[in-house]
Amino acid sequence: MKKLLTGLVLTFGLAGLAQAADPSAGEEIAQNQCVSCHGQNGVEPLQPNYARLAGLGEDYLFKQLRDIKSGDRNVAAMMGIVANLDKQDMRNLAAYFNEQEMPRGEADSEKVDAGKSLYRGGDLSRDVAACIACHGPKGLGNEPAGYPRLSGQSAEYVVKSLKDYRSGDRVYDEQSQIMGDIASKLTDNEMQAVAEYVEGLY
Rank of each mutant, 00 (worst) to 15 (best):
Y147R: 01
R126L: 12
K138L: 15
E28T: 15
V82M: 00
G42Q: 14
S167R: 06
G16I: 11
G168P: 01
K111W: 04
N84H: 03
V194E: 04
R66I: 06
V194P: 04
S184H: 09
V112Y: 02
S167W: 07
R166N: 13
G26Y: 09
N142C: 03
S161G: 07
G26A: 12
E190Q: 15
Y60D: 13
E156D: 12
D89Y: 06
E110V: 08
N84F: 06
D164P: 00
V198G: 06
Q31K: 14
G136T: 01
Y172P: 02
A195W: 12
A94V: 04
V128M: 13
V158K: 05
D59M: 12
T6D: 01
A183H: 13
L14W: 06
D67I: 13
L124A: 08
V9L: 00
A95Q: 03
D59N: 10
I178E: 07
L93W: 01
G16W: 11
F97D: 11
Q19M: 15
A77P: 02
A76M: 14
D59F: 12
S184K: 10
E110C: 02
R170K: 05
I182R: 00
A94S: 10
A18Y: 10
N142Y: 08
P23N: 11
L14M: 10
I182P: 02
E196G: 08
A21Y: 12
A133Y: 03
M90I: 03
K3G: 00
A183D: 10
G146R: 04
Q177R: 10
Q100P: 09
D86P: 05
R170Q: 08
G121L: 14
A183W: 14
V159I: 15
L10K: 04
G146I: 09
R149M: 07
S176E: 03
L65W: 11
A83P: 00
A195D: 10
G136M: 07
Y119N: 09
M79T: 12
L53Q: 15
P23H: 09
L150D: 07
L65G: 00
D127M: 11
M191L: 13
D113I: 05
D181I: 13
I68H: 01
R73Y: 02
Y50L: 14
C34S: 11
K138G: 14
I29S: 14
G152W: 14
G71M: 04
A20H: 12
L8D: 04
D169T: 07
Y157A: 06
D181C: 01
S176I: 00
L140H: 01
E106A: 10
T11E: 03
E199A: 01
A107V: 03
R73F: 08
G168F: 04
R170G: 08
S117N: 11
L4P: 04
L14I: 05
Q88M: 04
I81R: 12
T187N: 00
P45G: 14
S117T: 12
R166I: 10
Y147F: 15
M90Q: 08
V112S: 12
L17Y: 09
Y197Q: 11
D59T: 10
N189H: 06
Y202W: 10
G13P: 10
E101I: 06
A193T: 01
E156W: 01
M78E: 04
D188E: 14
V128E: 06
E106D: 04
E99C: 06
Q175S: 04
E196V: 02
A94H: 05
G168W: 00
E174I: 03
D108W: 06
P144M: 02
G141H: 03
Q19I: 13
G105Q: 09
Y197W: 11
R120G: 07
